[in-house]
Design a protein around this nucleic acid. Structure first.
Lengths: 202, 202
DNA sequence: TGATTTATATACCGATCGGTATAAAAATAT
DNA sequence: ATATTTTTATACCGATCGGTATATAAATCA
């Protein structure tokens, strides 16, 4: 019945594109971190006034989390893509190489938003810090799952410590994010990625 | 003449220990980062009122930089110590293993202050961010110097890319700092350090 | 054409930010 | 003692923080 109803609701229509505005917020949080970003700056880059932001996205915490969720689903979709590779070594290799490219893109801030936005913070932002930690844990868990399959497929030695291997490569990823935020080039990140592959079980 | 003069100056004497207060500030900056630390919190943990802090250490920026300089000279002196090892491989191995222990100590915040305190920040803190980047560069340069000696001593293959090797190991160090800030244990950091040594030139 | 509903713009809120003016307290100098 | 010098404690500063009350603008509903 109401599945085909556009059902235009009354009232003044929204005058901005929701996802476009969210992307603007995402890029600012990415560049400045959670605490370094102010609502005043957000209103500027989003082109909205405060009440519109609060009505559409909630308060600063909620806006940030929505930005991170969009960051994970959209610009860093290459991660999920890399994990689909048939060989787990290729998956990790692609993951790190794509990350090197991604973290040094011209039109986006350097590094990884999930790694850098709130590593340390004031008391009031501890929940945001924990939220980002859980996001990073998700990648680590995904690697563990991928490696379990690989070990079952005899692609990894049966005595491989999968947890350690996964943690090692997310550590590389996080170290690359720090490097990118410090001004490292794509070439430099690629060399780091290449050297990190030397730890792959033989 | 005046070399042996204590020359007690007039005026009310300082009622606190300078370095002790600086250590308190150091630990708070270490835990909360530069932006996450407020002067109000600093007065509490240092046990001083604001004018005393400003008189003894300058403003927030200067206090932070003095805290970092103390951090580099005192608690992380193990880094300079590790680099003195006769074999460069032992030096790096000791550096990473000691870092694993240091970053997960009970009585100090997790991770490394120089890595974590201001990776991303608001416009007003950009100078602090650059200051920390230069501190991290110093470690990388020290590694490069150490590796140059090692290559000359035939301890490293003549075609070793020393810059890449140094950047790789500081990246490991920085990744470990992120891991520690995310709750990683000493055991986990040690396993990362061990795996990272697989990249050593054969 | 009202009446209703939603979004916009402006102005403002108390709280907190980093930093300081002011005056009392505690030492030395004469 | 009295004056001088430095540190202490209190109170306060303008600016900015995240968040919101209020009223106007723009749409649909009847």
């Amino acid at each position: 019945m109401n599945t085909t109803k556009p059902k235009k609701s009354p009232g003044r229509p929204v005058s901005f594109d929701h996802d476009e505005a969210l992307d603007k917020a995402l890029n600012l949080f990415w560049l400045r971190g959670y605490e370094g970003t102010t609502m005043a700056e957000l209103t500027k880059v989003m082109g909205l006034n405060r009440p519109s932001i609060y009505a559409a996205f909630g308060n600063k915490d909620e806006l940030f989390q929505k930005a991170v969720n969009r960051y994970i689903s959209e610009p860093t979709a290459f991660i999920a893509e890399a994990l689909k590779k048939s060989k787990s070594r290729d998956a990790v290799n692609k993951l790190l190489n794509d990350a090197a490219d991604f973290m040094t893109k011209k039109n986006t801030p350097p590094g990884c938003m999930v790694v850098l936005s709130a590593l340390v913070c004031g008391k009031e932002s501890e929940n945001i810090k924990k939220f980002l930690i859980s996001c990073r844990d998700n990648l680590e868990c995904a690697l563990v799952q991928r490696f379990k399959v690989a070990r079952k497929n005899k692609e990894l030695p049966p005595d491989t410590n999968i947890s350690e291997l996964a943690k090692y490569y997310v550590t590389i990823h996080q170290g690359m994010a720090v490097q990118a935020a410090s001004g490292a080039t794509k070439k430099e990140l690629l060399s780091i990625a290449r050297m990190a592959m030397n730890a792959w079980p033989s």
